[in-house]
Amino acid sequence: MNLDFGQIVPYIPFMLEGIWVTLKFVIFAIIFGFVLGTLLALCKISHVKVIGWLADAYTSVFRGTPLILQLMIIYYAVPELVGYDISPFLSSILAFGLNSSAYVSEIIRAGIQAVDKGQTEAAQALGVPYNQMMKDIILPQAMKNILPALMNEFITLTKESALVSTIGYLDLMRRATVVGADLYRNFEPLLFVGVIYYLLVMGLTIIGRLVERRLRYSD
């Protein structure tokens, strides 16, 4: 085996561009998944049973089927149905966001339920309305406890983002295969983007640690 990284040098800018292409939809997907996941979590702890069931059903479907299948359905199948030609970018955000929200909602639900019930009672006794109590008192405490689990989910999403190469989205992964096909050498470009994925995840890990440290001020 003789690795020759010299040959991929001309392709490096092309592959580096993939970082931003990947990050662009990952960031949107994370935010979308987080917001939707929080709303779903609030539905799950709702006293209105029907709302809770709907949220549970949602989670069950999106957790129970492969992400790549969801991606394909959104990109290939839905346009057949509604006639709207959805872009790979938008499909990716939708598929990853919807999928991630199912996992995030479970993490947040567990986090909310782990906050001492006395916190709710103390807020109620002060006359604090439900929405305000959730926003200012329960969720901040829940977030602090579930941050490691959330970071895990975000890291998984970042890595799994490579799946979007299957619908022709020119992300990091796709670019590596394009270069590989061009050079008839796969090892070097794949290794190259492998390192980049690893660095991205390391970056996320460090951000997570910093946020965690910041939130620990009150301990």
Partner: peptide, 11 residues
Amino acid sequence: MVFQHFYLFPH
């Protein structure tokens, strides 16, 4: 209301 276990807001 004052509780046995205080329930101050820790954050």
